[in-house]
Structures are given as structure tokens and as C-alpha cells.
């Protein structure tokens, strides 16, 4: 059986995720214990073929409104709340899967999955976007120099369920409201969220490879 990774393609940088997963499959297939494939997902028939779903960066407002209007919201909700499925949200995807938004929440109906409180555009506007070299070696072996690109990025300012949500990485300092700057977290072993864009790291598939090994394949073999 092939394990299928879907990338939500309602709006945003979904092709970049597809390319990174494809590159993982080509370069690391001998190290994966299962055969993998990747596809874009725009409707429930496509979603039904998937074992995992990546929700990409883009505009969370646009994604949320499109999903709701086309009647796709309920299918997405059921998928991500199914414990046998794996979900990873990046940037807008993080906003879309979180339980609470502390600002600009009016037009976004989230999937109410990740038990955290998220602040949208936490650093400010595009002028405050940046790439930071981050040491992720405490959760990705040997990965101590990953170029994490933050674009009008959200942050997790509070974990609402510390028993099930594990903070993977936070930036030094606090935001202007004195809250923490958590930028990567996981919930149980099947939900991952990052406020930055590993799919924009050119020719660097370490993050996607780790996601495939630690989430997609482990969850599938259970």
C-alpha cells in the first residue's frame, strides 16, 4: 500500500510543499519503510485518498472562507480530527488548525484542532518578515542550522493543553504583549504546526523528511 500525503490546494504556496515532498521521495525512498506519494487536495474525493494532510501557507482568511463556502469545511474537520490521520499546518495552516485566535479572528473559522492560542501577523507586516537560522537539533537530529523563513507570520502565544501539546521551538524574547514566541509545536504524535515556511528552504528537505519519518510513517505503522 502507498501512503498518500495530501497538500491542501485552496489557495497559497501548496506547490512548494508538493515539490519538497517529491524531493524527499526521490532522494530518500530507500530509507522509508513504505511507498509514498503526494497529491494536491481541493475537494472531499481527493481528501478521501489521503493518509496525511499538509495545510500550506497563504491567507488563512481566504482558505477558511473558500473551504466554508464550498462545503469542504466539514470534510476537513472530520479528517484532521481523525486520530489515524496526520496533519501539518505551516503559517496560515497553523492559524487554520488552531483552537483559538487572539486577534483578527472574525473571518476565520478554524478547524479547532491544535489546543493553542495563536496571534496572527505577530511580528507585524511584510516589513517585519525575516529568515532566521534556527537550531532544531533537539527534535530533528543534527539539524542545527535550518533557514526558517517567517512571512507575516503568526506565533503560538499560549499552549492551552500542556499535557498534549509539546513546544518544539520558541524564539528568544517576548512579543509586545509580553507573550511567548512559540513557532513550532506538536500535539500527540500526529499533529504538527510551524509558523515559518520549511517549504521555502531551497534544496533543504530536512524538515519535510523529518515530518515524513516522525509523523506520516510512524503513525501509519501503528
Amino acid at each position: 500500500m502507498t501512503v498518500v500525503i495530501g497538500v491542501l490546494a485552496l489557495q497559497g504556496a501548496f506547490i512548494e510543499h508538493v515539490r519538497h515532498v517529491e524531493k524527499c521521495i526521490v532522494e530518500n525512498r530507500d530509507f522509508y519503510e513504505k511507498k509514498l506519494s503526494v497529491m494536491t487536495v481541493k475537494d472531499k474525493n481527493q481528501l478521501a485518498q489521503c493518509d496525511a494532510l499538509i495545510i500550506p501557507g497563504g491567507e488563512s482568511t481566504a482558505m477558511s472562507l473558500i473551504a466554508e463556502r464550498t462545503g469542504f469545511y466539514d470534510d476537513l474537520y472530520a479528517f484532521v480530527h481523525n486520530p489515524s490521520k496526520v496533519t501539518w499546518g505551516t503559517c496560515a495552516g497553523l492559524i487554520y488548525i488552531s483552537q483559538q485566535l487572539s486577534n483578527e479572528a472574525k473571518l476565520v473559522k478554524t478547524l479547532n484542532l491544535l489546543k493553542v492560542k495563536v496571534k496572527r501577523n505577530a511580528f507585524g507586516r511584510q516589513a517585519q518578515s525575516s529568515t532566521r537560522i534556527c537550531d532544531f537539533s533537539n527534535f530533528i537530529p543534527h539539524c542545527n542550522d535550518f533557514p526558517a523563513t517567517f512571512i507575516r507570520a503568526p506565533v503560538i502565544e499560549e499552549v492551552l493543553d500542556p499535557e498534549h501539546v509539546q513546544v518544539l521551538y520558541k524564539l528568544d524574547g517576548k512579543d509586545n504583549g509580553g507573550q511567548e514566541l512559540i513557532v513550532a509545536a506538536k500535539q500527540k504524535n500526529n499533529i504538527l504546526a510551524t509558523s515559518f515556511h520549511p517549504e521555502l528552504a531551497e534544496n533543504d528537505i530536512r524538515f519535510h523528511d523529518w515530518f515524513i519519518r516522525e509523523f506520516v510513517l510512524k503513525n501509519y505503522s501503528k
Binding site: 485552496l10 504556496a13 497563504g58 481566504a62 503559517c91 496560515a92 529568515t131 523563513t149 515556511h197 521555502l200
Partner: peptide, 18 residues
Amino acid sequence: GEDFKIKSGLAQMLKGGV
């Protein structure tokens, strides 16, 4: 290159959109 990536990156996030 990193500065340019932040600029072109926002455009990438707008894709598939209006």
C-alpha cells in the same frame, strides 16, 4: 538571496488567490 526570498516568498503565499 535571503532578502529576496522574503520578498518573493510573500508573492508565493498569494498564489492561487485574487
